[in-house]
Design a protein around this nucleic acid. Structure first.
Length: 868
RNA sequence: GCCCCUGUGGCGGAAUUGGUAGACGCGCUGGAUUCAAAAUCCAGUUCUUUCGGGAGUGGGAGUUCGAUUCUCCCCGGGGGCACCA
């Protein structure tokens, strides 16, 4: 084949079509209609400076769906915004002597134009940044609503303090004892903080996970674990002193294993437990121990290396069912004040941690659960743990002896309930969400501190509380706290001079309701019910798995809060969630150069070297692109060199979208070659005689019929694959079809039938590549002589009559091994198929000397001859 | 420690309800075209073989006429949770 076509020039074509789309307003979502809607949302970006390949992958996937759904007739909402508050802006301000506001908006401008160069089908008229006063002012209103509804509380509490970022962190933001952003070991401090009462919704958030079939099971499991429901029993011990005299205090504990009560050999309470505090008043030793525990913190090293330690408090707990028995009460460093009652009873025989503790302090170890075949079980340094209770029986346990674990649990609960000293209880790991942050670049909390009236919510008519444009970062700490002019205000209640709250909201609040704001981004009200109820829930949400807990759980909670405040009437914000994989790249390292950018590494044979210095480089692990390892490829360079469509195509090819994808120069080259190939095919077809444009010819050659069948099959399966988010498969189908099409172009006989089949194929090819390579699709569509934008065209319907096959090819097996294949009419009945199969040369030869015992015919699939 | 996911050619990965394993792409090999190169096109590409076949989806067993797919055990890789009582 001689190539006479011009090459496709993405640098000219892409900006041209982007402008055409904008001029025609193709991507504007329509409000106030009854059309079927589709809301596609990708997690909005933090404006860090420039887009990276992860953004390209994420937004390409969403865009494919948005464009496809538009073509399928949906009123599509596909918006973009900026998660613009947060620490990096303050860090940049400190390092480069700029203001967070200017830095942020400049980054937004850069990234907006980069995203636009990708040709995303976004309704830019709805764009906002969370640092826009029009946005965060509305957020303050929602906070006051939540306050009115009792969803907010101010509490003095021990909080996670990040000593590097100088701020409080929520539990969800502490990862392995370190700040999620700074990585610094988190300390414990006591502060007055605002909390959102997410724990009121623990059960509701847990239950509703069952009604989210469109979410990955993995994410639902992670949320279930995080909420951490556990069923058990809460009961109180009577306490006595050394001499056996009953004292006033009681000790309340929570346990999931009440069945092991007769194995109890000690009780342990947290260092901050009232009993510890009380004991420390009379004992320097205990006071020192408490200090030691407080200093330990929750850092990873501390948790992993800390020995199980305790101090006897000088008091004993009376066994609830055995008046002769009492157990010592310890303060212990492994008991958490924040969970349950901050106190446990220890049963060493059946809990490894309790056993370690008991062995250290020489406490009694009594097994109370035994395998039915080993009733004489001995426990030394390994606890016997059987959670499901199969083949085990209670021993050494008075009235529980002989019972199963679950019978024993039930019996103990009943007895406590009868004595009214205990009750069944459900505990959750999920704590309330601390939302105060001692930072400047965030949404101000609309509260005033008045000496007379205490804490007073700002008047709604005085909202928004506007963040000062500039802040001074000369000293550590919160610049707002030092801004006397901004701080000074009058009390909304009594009018006297008062001070503003200088904490700002956790930025996760900003992203907890942005999806609702996109439904009515310009409204005076935070959320307009009619718009929200029309557009929500988000039909397809796409983002990284790293937000499986934090952002997604907070958003689910916020949605419930918004509902309670009558802003909307939907149950869950995101009907379908997709977590996309990361973009990875090989790393390069040189002895002198350190980490080296991929563009500076050149390959000779199988060795790598530095492009400029010639230094040999070591090709290392293939890991997520990161600035620190320098294994990054700048999307702008790729778009400049190959065009956005090529970058988009590569991101969708090969790897399933939920898995990681490796970026390679060769892969990008391959995607670029394919864009050129597509263009050549369309170009050549466009140059064919057009006299047969009217009507379907009566006769088709076999090849033309075959091509038409493939064409319609491809159309159908590409649509199905896009709907199932299996982009790699739809791309494979398109490759297959273009291979057939190329073949046909070479052998076509210039008949009306062949030309018709080719033109039909070219037309449908434009449609099916349009969601993925929209610019090329427009260019091809125009090349075929169409005046309108393909972005405005409906997705074509596959011709069912062409999808039907009259014949079918079936494999013929002998004893499960494939020996031949037959092509028979689809309607042929079983016995005829058997006959045909048995007559095959290869079959009769292989059956020589064997007895045919059975023939299995699955019409349309397989013939299996069983013989021996 | 507990829970979840995953394992298929040199590589990324295909394979409705169990029904022709390796689609499609990358890479590689050979060829055509070219003064040459790029680009493009064609052929081949799981392993093995005495060219009849044989083996083969991490390993082992099981169910079945038939297993990448279902069940059990083991091994490797990834992730989540974790002094949570």
């Amino acid at each position: 084949m001689t190539i006479t076509s011009e090459r496709y020039n993405s640098r000219q074509a892409e900006p041209k079509w982007q402008k055409a789309w904008e001029d025609a307003g193709v991507f504007i979502a329509r409000d106030n209609t009854t059309e079927p809607k589709y809301f596609v949302l990708e997690m909005f970006p933090y404006p860090s400076g420039r887009i990276h390949m992860g953004h390209v992958r994420n937004y390409t996937m969403g865009d494919v769906i948005a464009r496809y759904k538009r073509a399928k007739g949906f009123n599509v909402l596909h918006p973009m915004g900026w998660d613009a508050f947060g620490m990096p802006a303050e860090n940049a301000a400190m390092e480069n002597n700029v203001q967070p506001k200017g830095w942020t908006y400049e980054n937004i401008a850069t990234m907006r134009s980069q995203l636009k160069s990708m040709g995303l089908s976004i309704d830019w008229s709805r764009e906002f940044a969370t640092c826009d006063v029009e946005y965060y002012g509305k957020q303050q209103e929602i906070f006051l609503d939540f306050l009115d509804l009792g969803l907010v509380e101010r509490r003095k509490s021990v909080v996670n303090w990040d000593p590097v970022d100088n701020t409080v962190l929520a539990n969800e933001q502490v990862i392995d004892g370190k700040g999620w952003r700074s990585g610094a070991p988190v300390e414990q401090r006591e502060l007055s903080q605002w909390f959102l009462k997410i724990s009121d919704y623990s059960q509701e958030l847990l239950d509703a996970l069952d009604n989210l079939p469109g979410w990955p099971e993995k994410v639902r499991t992670m949320q279930r674990n995080w909420i951490g429901r556990s069923e058990g029993l809460q009961f109180s011990f009577d306490l006595e002193d050394e001499n056996g005299k009953l004292i006033d205090d009681k000790l309340t504990v929570f346990t999931t294993r009440p069945d092991t009560i007769f194995g109890a050999s000690f009780c342990a309470v947290a260092a901050e437990h009232p009993l510890s505090i009380k004991a420390s008043e009379n004992s320097q030793e205990i006071a020192d121990f408490r200090k030691e525990c407080a200093a330990l913190g929750t850092s990873e090293e501390a948790i992993e290396t800390a020995e199980k330690k305790g101090k006897f408090l000088g008091i004993y707990a009376r066994h609830p069912f055995d008046s002769k028995k009492r157990v010592p009460v310890y303060a212990a460093n492994f008991v958490l004040m924040g969970y349950g009652e901050g106190a446990v009873f220890g049963c060493p025989a059946h809990d490894q941690r309790d056993l370690d503790f008991a062995n250290k302090y020489g406490l009694e170890v009594t097994p109370v659960v035994a395998p039915i075949n080993d009733l004489e079980i001995k426990i030394t340094d390994k606890a016997f743990i059987d959670n499901n209770g199969e083949n085990t029986v209670m021993i050494n346990s008075s009235f529980l002896n002989g019972m199963t674990i679950s019978q024993a649990k039930e019996e103990v609960a009943k007895r406590f309930e009868q004595q009214q000293t205990g009750e069944r209880k459900i505990n959750y790991r999920l704590r309330d969400w601390g939302i105060s942050r001692q930072r400047y670049w965030g949404c101000p909390i609309p509260i005033v501190h008045c000496d007379n009236c205490g804490l007073v919510p700002e008047k709604r008519s005085s909202l928004p509380v506007v963040l000062p444009d500039e802040a001074d970062f000369d000293q550590p700490g919160n610049p707002l706290d030092r801004n006397q002019e901004w701080k000074k205000t009058s009390c909304p209640k009594c009018g006297k001079t008062a001070e503003r709250e200088t904490d700002t909201f956790d930025t996760f609040i900003d992203s907890s309701w942005y999806y609702a704001r996109f439904c009515s981004p310009k409204s005076d009200k935070p959320v307009v019910a009619d718009s929200a109820n029309y557009w929500l829930p988000v039909d397809q949400y796409i983002g990284g798995i790293e937000h499986a807990i934090l952002h997604l759980l907070y958003s689910r909670f916020f949605c419930r809060g918004l509902k309670k405040a009558n802003y909307l009437d939907i149950k869950e914000p995101f009907a379908n969630l997709f977590t996309q994989g990361m973009v990875t790249h090989m790393t390069f390292k040189g002895k002198n150069a350190g980490w080296v950018l991929p563009e500076l590494a050149i390959k000779t044979g199988d060795k790598w070297s530095h492009k400029e210095t010639g230094e040999p480089l070591e090709a290392g692990a293939i890991i997520k692109m990161s600035k620190s390892k320098k294994n990054v490829v700048d999307p702008e360079h790729i778009i400049d060199e190959y065009g956005a469509d090529t970058a988009r195509w590569y991101m969708l090819s090969d790897s399933p979208p939920d898995r990681d994808i490796e970026w390679t120069a060769a892969g990008a080259e391959g995607a670029w070659k394919f864009t050129q190939k597509l263009w050549r095919i369309i170009y050549l077809i466009s140059k064919l005689e057009t006299s047969n444009k009217i009507g379907i010819p009566d006769n088709f050659s076999d090849k033309a019929s075959q091509l038409r069948k493939s064409c319609h099959k491809t159309l159908k399966s590409v649509g199905q694959d896009i709907e199932a988010l299996r982009f790699n498969r739809s791309i494979a189908r398109i490759h297959e079809f273009t291979n057939e099409l190329t073949d046909m172009l070479k052998t076509n006989n210039n008949s009306a039938g062949d030309h018709f089949a080719l033109k039909e194929s070219a037309t449908i090819l434009c449609h099916i590549i349009a969601p993925m390579m929209p610019h090329l699709a427009e260019e091809c569509w125009a090349q075929l002589g169409n005046d309108e934008l393909i972005s405005l065209q409906a997705w074509p319907t596959a011709d069912e009559s062409l999808l039907k096959e009259n014949t079918v090819t079936m494999a013929v097996q002998i004893n499960g091994k494939r020996r031949a294949e037959i092509t028979v009419p689809k309607t042929m009945d079983k016995s005829d198929i058997e006959k045909v199969a048995l007559e095959l040369d290869n079959v009769s030869r292989n059956l020589d000397g064997l007895n045919v015992r059975k023939i299995i015919v699955v019409p349309g699939r397989i013939v299996n001859i069983v013989a021996n």
